[in-house]
């Protein structure tokens, strides 16, 4: 297994579109070709070699030194692994369809938006619109897995249709906004207006919440499904520990009935 490393030469002077740095795109190039690749920097362009020191050899793994102005890291990733030492900017892993993106720091806005497959792991916090939808789209995330050790911002899982998001810390407001299906696990506290406009899907967390009026309180229930899900989580790497053990009896709210929805908020005892 060969690995290609990118070390930043110095502080970034603007936002960089790092989406071309995908393992499968780089695998067929040699280091000089990669160094000559243009990246968008602000309104202009800059060659990869002017931004990064390259080492290693192209293969199925890319290692990046992170920066919070490095946008679109792993956007469109379809296979292989990208490991980022440090934070990333916005839209990390947008539209990913496979492979693995590991961010060892925090992520900016819309990480994993419109994701279709693969695994996005964030060791720090994630910004707003984690696993959300691209502007104007009816469907958000349609597959894959997002695991965040820290907390996330507002509108996590917006218009989600399939897949799993597990957030170890707290979630911001409007989690699962207009969710269509899929599962969102919150290890910490869910924020305000969780599940607004939800049509279907599951939001799972611990402890009581003040559910929106569109949700019908269906009381406590013992759901074998929760054990099944927890069993599945036990087989995965990187699952935030606070998202484990969400089994046993859970209070179930059904909604958002204001939108004809029958999604569920499950708060485990």
């Amino acid at each position: 297994m060969s690995m290609l490393s990118f070390r930043l030469k110095g502080p970034l002077t603007g936002r960089v579109d790092a989406s071309p740095l995908l393992p499968h795109r780089l695998a067929a190039m040699d280091l000089t070709e990669i160094a000559a690749l243009p990246l968008r920097l602000g309104r202009g362009r800059i060659a990869v070699g002017d931004l990064f020191d390259l080492s290693g050899s192209p293969g199925d793994t890319v290692e990046l030194e992170g920066d919070e102005r490095l946008d679109f890291v792993g956007a469109g990733l379809s296979g292989g692994t990208i490991r980022v030492a440090g934070p990333v900017g916005h839209r990390a892993g947008t539209g990913m369809s496979g492979g693995s993106l590991v961010v060892e720091g925090s992520a900016g806005l819309a990480a994993g938006a419109a994701m279709r497959g693969g695994v996005l792991t964030i060791a720090g916090d994630a910004g707003n619109e984690l696993g959300g939808a691209l502007p104007g789209e009816r469907a958000g995330m349609t597959g894959g897995r997002i695991l965040v050790r820290g907390s996330c911002g507002d509108r996590v899982g917006e218009r989600m249709r399939r897949g799993l998001i597990a957030v170890g810390g707290d979630a911001g407001a409007y989690a699962a906004l207009h969710m269509n299906a899929g599962s969102l696990l919150i290890g910490g506290r869910p924020g305000a207006a969780t599940g607004h406009g939800m049509r279907n899907g599951t939001v799972l967390f611990r402890g009581e919440i003040d559910a929106l009026p569109g949700f019908a309180d269906c009381g406590l229930n013992q759901l074998p499904f929760l054990s099944l899900l927890d069993n599945h989580l036990s087989e995965l790497d990187w699952v935030p520990p606070s998202c484990r053990g969400l089994t046993g009896r859970a209070r179930r709210w059904l909604g958002d009935r204001g939108f004809g929805g029958r999604g569920e908020l499950l708060s485990c005892l």
Partner: peptide, 13 residues
């Protein structure tokens, strides 16, 4: 009824 996809397999509740 509600469907859930867990680990690539679909379940009905």
């Amino acid at each position: 009824q509600m469907s859930k996809l867990v680990g690539g397999r679909r379940y009905w509740r």
